[in-house]
């Protein structure tokens, strides 16, 4: 059904002292051993991914830049990423979303629950095929899966996911009953997962 390959992502820029074909795991190991060139390699691969997510949530380029900078500059000190449980791209994208929503919350919205933010990457045991695919292939697959959802299901999922809005807040904004929001959010997620099939197993 899906045909993913596990080749490392090709960086857009050349990296001094690091092979452009270095795997994500090699880059992280190199970074952890104190090689600053590894940071350039990781940034070249995933800088725009993190920036894109930060901008989507925070809206302002300056804030998105600031968060992207924070995430990458703190990366060397982080021992949390476990390559057996998730791909580096997953770790960075979950981290970017979590930190961006946290910033929104700290800006003082009374309505926004801090606690949409679960602990990062809970309950994971392995890296899935979709995470091992190239960024382009992963994006296409996810966009196709999202496109199969009814508009309102997708809208509700995205409001919850990218704006950190509770179901009650979404019900208010869309002027539909809370129970409807809840059932459509679940159905949307179930359908998304169904469409992705073995790629996320």
């Amino acid at each position: 059904m899906f045909c993913f390959y596990t080749a490392p992502e090709a960086p857009p820029f050349s990296m001094a002292l690091m092979s452009p074909n270095a795997s994500d795991i090699e880059l992280i190991e190199s970074l952890r051993s104190g090689n600053p060139d590894a940071l350039a390699g990781i940034y070249d691969r995933y800088g725009s991914l993190v920036y894109t997510i930060a901008l989507k949530i925070l809206k302002y380029p300056a804030e998105a830049e600031d968060l992207t900078q924070e995430i990458f500059l703190n990366l060397p000190d982080k021992e949390k990423f476990d390559p057996k449980r998730a791909a580096l791209s997953t770790y960075l994208s979950v981290l970017a979303r979590s930190r961006a929503l946290n910033r929104l919350s700290s800006h003082g919205s009374q309505q926004r629950s801090l606690q949409k933010l679960k602990r990062l990457l809970p309950d994971r045991s392995h890296v899935t095929p979709l995470e091992q695919a190239s960024q382009a292939e992963r994006k296409t697959t996810l966009q196709q899966a999202l496109a199969t959802l009814p508009d309102q299901h997708r809208t509700i999922l995205e409001m919850n996911f990218f704006q950190g809005l509770s179901h009650a807040e979404i019900a208010q904004q869309l002027n539909i009953p809370l129970g409807t929001v809840k059932s459509k959010a679940r159905k949307g997620l179930m359908d998304l997962r169904q469409h992705l099939g073995e790629a996320v197993q």
Binding site: L55, T90, K139, A145, V200
Partner: peptide, 30 residues
Amino acid sequence: EIQAVQTSLDLLSQALPTVPAPASLRAKIV
């Protein structure tokens, strides 16, 4: 199944159309 559903949701942000990070940002980080 819970893991698979969680992964599906975790990856949602990677469906966003890529917005290239400003070139000046790379220098600030690297």
